[in-house]
Nucleic acid binder design. Structure first.
Length: 307
DNA sequence: TAAGATAAGAGGGACAT
DNA sequence: ATGTCAGTCTTATCTTA
């Protein structure tokens, strides 16, 4: 299968194999490049006994379907097991059974809710560049939330957005609350509130987003030089696991260190460029600069930041 | 024009009542 | 449950180099 060699979003990253999911993801922004296309075309040959039946055996089992794709339906061909036509009374019985069968497919409110939610999830997945693994993770989280009654009283899309956000975080993909909110058309604060509820109620531990990934993402989005990017990532390593970023949004610090690195390299860039790429404001960058200036740090690091 | 300064306001956590 | 407080971040506006 053809794989484009440059990430379509950040225009810079190369596809690398993600050992966790086995998919090709962008080395810089974490976007999924491509995945194995599902083989849902008809079989070329028929291995079974039925004549002229080249159908596949069904789509893969997925959590992102309300019944996990394991549904069966009562057939419509009105033949018995030997292929004989069935008689009239049996015919009407079968018709009635089909009606019940169809209705029971999505009869509980849980099933209906899941159908709605996963329908929406399917519509969002391309916009977010989500892999199958991320979709399944999202679906799993949503199921748990629904089972715990966390959806009642809140909108499906709010909880779904939060589940998407959590799935992204767990897979190490760089997506902000703002990104997710914009794509799912849910207000950032609503996504954020739902997110907090989910991680509290489901007792989830969400890994902190890797700040070096943030830097790579911003640098590519703002089309900055590799040199500044490298430098910023090196510098950032001196700040991870310190309290420099405690309680602050990682993007703000990442953007600031990147900005300072660019200045150091005499790269033509404005606060505005970087702020936009990072999804923060210029003021935040300025505040972070002030914080950094007043911090104690080794002179080597200080020299690198403030020449 | 980019960067710095300042102010007002939103949203949420901690903590007390 | 409700109110207050400190801290973070955004938006908007004005000034400065």
């Amino acid at each position: 299968m053809h794989v484009s060699m440059v990430c379509s979003v950040c225009k810079n990253g190369r596809p690398i194999a993600d050992p966790e999911s086995g998919e090709l993801v962008c080395s810089d922004c974490g976007l999924v490049f491509s995945e194995k296309a599902p083989e849902n075309r008809a079989e070329w040959r028929n291995f079974g006994s039925e004549k002229n039946d080249r159908a596949r055996t069904g789509s893969p089992v997925s959590l992102a379907q309300h019944d996990m794709g394991l549904n069966t339906v009562i057939g419509n061909n009105n033949k018995d097991s030997r292929g004989q036509n069935i008689d009239a009374s049996m015919h009407s019985t079968m018709k009635r059974l089909r009606t019940y069968d169809f209705r029971s497919q999505a009869h509980t409110s849980t099933d209906r809710n899941l159908m709605r939610a996963f329908g929406e999830l399917g519509r969002q997945r391309d916009k977010l560049g989500m892999s199958d693994a991320m979709i399944d993770k999202t679906a799993y989280i949503y199921r748990k939330a629904l089972a715990k009654g966390l959806v009642r009283g809140r909108s499906t899309s709010a909880i779904l957005s939060a589940a998407i956000y959590i799935a992204c975080r767990e897979m190490g993909a760089v997506r902000s609350l703002k990104d997710v909110g914009e794509i799912t058309d849910v207000k950032r604060k609503v996504v954020s509130r739902s997110y907090r509820i989910l991680i509290q109620q489901l007792e989830m531990i969400i890994p902190v987003i890797d700040p070096t990934k943030c830097i790579a993402m911003i640098a590519n989005k703002a089309k900055l030089s590799e040199k500044s990017k490298r430098m910023a990532i090196d510098t950032m390593k001196d700040f991870t696991n310190t309290d420099a970023s405690a309680g602050k949004r990682p993007m703000g610090l990442a953007a600031t260190i990147l900005y300072l690195s660019c200045l150091r390299n005499d790269e033509d860039v404005t606060q505005k460029n970087i702020a936009e790429a990072a999804g923060v404001t210029e003021v935040t960058i300025r505040n972070r600069i002030k914080d950094l200036k007043s911090r104690s740090m080794s002179s080597a690091v200080r020299d690198r930041l403030f020449p």
